[in-house]
């Protein structure tokens, strides 16, 4: 449905902005312990970078980020988050209690890393889900 909007400025600016947005999004996801940020915010920024690619490049962006990849990434994030929750149940804790038995780590440090991986998986999930919604709407649907 979308074709590339023929403007050299849009093309150049989008190519320059997308990597910066993605790097900043990974910073927001992984730095959520110390500053405002986290998986939801960073995931939305990653999705925004992909949508910027879609708008500026049109169908050329399907080679760089395939349309089928959105829901795959989102489903991976949800599955990994669920497995993280069940992993602590396997070690005798409650769901998402991060009570894993890792040698040499106290309970506080385990919860720190549990929060870190939960945020990363939430980031993947939001990224994939929003890109999938955009691609479904942008395709226009079947008759």
């Amino acid at each position: 449905m979308t074709s590339r909007f023929e403007s050299i400025f849009l093309f150049v600016v989008a190519r320059a902005m997308v990597p910066l947005i993605q790097v900043f999004a990974f910073y927001v996801i992984t730095h959520g312990h110390y500053s405002p940020g986290g998986g939801f915010q960073g995931g939305v920024m990653l999705a925004a970078s992909i949508i910027l690619l879609r708008i500026s490049l049109g169908e050329e962006s399907y080679d760089r980020f395939p349309r089928e990849a959105g829901i795959v990434i989102g489903g991976f994030g949800a599955l990994a988050f669920a497995l993280l929750g069940f992993a602590s149940m396997a070690f005798g804790g409650n769901f998402l209690e991060y009570a894993l038995a890792v040698p040499g780590m106290g309970a506080e440090e385990l919860r720190y890393w549990g929060i870190f991986f939960a945020e990363v998986f939430i980031g993947f999930l939001v990224w994939g889900a929003l890109v999938a919604i955009y691609d479904a709407l942008e395709s226009g649907g079947v008759e």
């Binding site: 939801f40 939305v44 889900a129 929003l130 919604i133 955009y134 479904a136 709407l137 649907g141």
Partner: peptide, 20 residues
């Protein structure tokens, strides 16, 4: 924070329904 992201997803579903 969670409600905003869920709200965006709900808006997406509503838009796909009215598109159909």
């Amino acid at each position: 924070l969670t409600a905003i992201v869920v709200g965006v997803a709900i808006t997406g579903v509503a838009l796909s329904l009215i598109l159909v």
